[in-house]
Every structure is written in C-alpha cells, then in structure tokens.
C-alpha cells in the first residue's frame, strides 16, 4: 500500500454571542475529519475520505464553554479499515460549568483486518451536562471484525465518573458469555442525569453510576436493534 498515513487534528469550540446564545467559536476541520454546522449549536462530522485506515492518527478536540450547548452528530457510520499498522481515533472533550454537550455520532464499524485504537477523555466541570453515545459494530454483514481497543475516561468535578475499556478481536473475550455473549454490536450512553434505580430489559441495562450519572449499556445482534435498545434505556433516564 502506498497511501500516505494521515495525521489530522480537528477542533471545535463554542462561545456565547452578545445575546447570550451559543455560537460556534472555532470549527477547524482537518480532513478526513470535516465539520459542518447544521443548526444553531449543532455540528455534523462528515468523513471526507475513507477510513480511518491502519496507520491513520486522527484527533478531535471539543470544548464547550460555560453556559453553552453543543450537539455533535455524524452523517454516516465510520468504517474502520486495515492499512499499515494501527489506526487511532483520539477525542478530547472539556465541558465547562453550565455547559451541555450531546455527542451522538453514527456507529463505528470494524471491518475485517482492522487494528483500531479509540481513546476518549471527557472532563466535566461541576454542573456540566453530557449525553454521550458510542456504538461499535463487529464487522459489516457476515464479516469477522479486526481488532479494536477503546478506552473511555470521564471525570466530573475532578472525580472519576466512568472509566471503561472494550477489547474486540481478542480470543479471550470474543464469544465469552461474560463479555459480549453472542452479540455483534456493543453500545453505551453516558448521561449526567442521576436515576434512582437500575433497570434491565432484553440486552440492555440502565445503570445508575456511583458518581453523578447513568450508563445505558446494551448488546445486540445488529446496529438497528442496538439503537433501539439504547433509545429505550435513554428514555428511562428522566431528564
């Protein structure tokens, strides 16, 4: 393969306009991560280019200023492909006091042979609010996925709120009834709304965290079922 390895760093920052409304202060795209404003305080991630491919190192920085609200979605799912070495997607997020972030892109699909690393670090100031959905699909239809190792770290007011790593494509955890069972997709939504009681339904649980938040965690046979299960769980967390 002769394709040059991609290094990209996109930046997204909000601020308040003079009437106290959210405006997008910085929106620096860096292909293949292209950002498009699609509404007030709403930005879509548009992938301009295939991948990530093995060897690519992509980074997105998101900063939500005090008292502002931002929603980030994506146009399509992300297909992680093999290439030269491992690919990396790194996301760094800061939400200031009174700020609110909804981050709900389409799923990440792990193609055969991929070797992907995802790290997300979310820092929440006291009184920041967050809705963060993450979905991983183990291969396209009928495909065995490559490897993926994701790590998600969220702190709230300086205290650890949620730290989770997922490993796909590891012989010890693949097909284990303790980890993913027979599922082909895994997903979760972290919401900084406290709910009193845990709930559980087929393939999905609503889990009140020890800190100020709730995790909806789901396993499913396909991406549609996964989204349905997560949506059900999200609807149980009263806003």
């Amino acid at each position: 393969m002769t394709k040059a390895l991609v290094r990209a760093r996109a930046i997204l920052r909000t601020g308040l306009d003079d009437r106290g409304r959210t405006r997008i202060e910085t929106m620096r795209s860096d292909p293949p991560i292209t950002l498009r404003q699609t509404g007030p305080g709403e930005v879509h991630l548009v992938s301009t280019g295939a991948g990530p491919l093995g060897g690519d190192r992509l980074r997105l920085d998101v900063e939500v200023a005090e008292g502002t609200s931002l929603t980030v979605r994506s146009i399509a799912s992300t297909l992680v492909l093999p290439g030269t070495g491992a690919s990396l997607m790194e996301i760094h997020v800061y939400v200031a006091s009174g700020g609110s972030l909804v981050f709900a892109p389409e799923p990440t699909v792990l193609a055969a042979g991929c070797d992907h690393r995802m790290t997300t670090a979310v820092t929440l100031a006291p009184d920041a609010s967050l809705f963060w959905r993450e979905e991983i699909v183990f291969g396209r239809h009928g495909e065995r996925p490559g490897r993926c190792h994701s790590r998600f770290d969220a702190t709230a007011g300086g205290r650890p709120l949620l730290r989770q790593e997922l490993v796909v494509g590891d012989p010890d955890s693949d097909g284990s009834p303790a980890v993913f069972g027979t599922a082909r997709c895994v997903g979760s939504t972290l919401i900084t709304t406290e709910c009193k009681e845990a709930e559980v339904a087929e393939g999905v649980a609503v889990l009140p965290l020890a800190g100020p938040g709730t995790l909806v965690s789901a396993l499913a046979a396909d991406a549609v079922e996964l989204r349905n299960r997560l949506s059900w769980g999200e609807s149980r967390v009263s806003v």
């Binding site: 790590r151 770290d153 730290r163 989770q164 790593e165 997922l166 490993v167 955890s173 284990s176 009834p177 303790a178 980890v179 993913f180 069972g181 599922a183 895994v186 979760s188 845990a198 709930e199 559980v200 393939g203 999905v204 649980a205 889990l207 965690s217 789901a218 396993l219």
Partner: peptide, 12 residues
C-alpha cells in the same frame, strides 16, 4: 478498566 457488558446485564 476493561468492561464486560454481559456481566453487567447478568448481575442486574
């Protein structure tokens, strides 16, 4: 921080 979503569901 390795998570096991199936264990979470089983425990609940």
């Amino acid at each position: 921080a390795h998570a096991a979503p199936a264990l979470d569901l089983l425990a609940e």
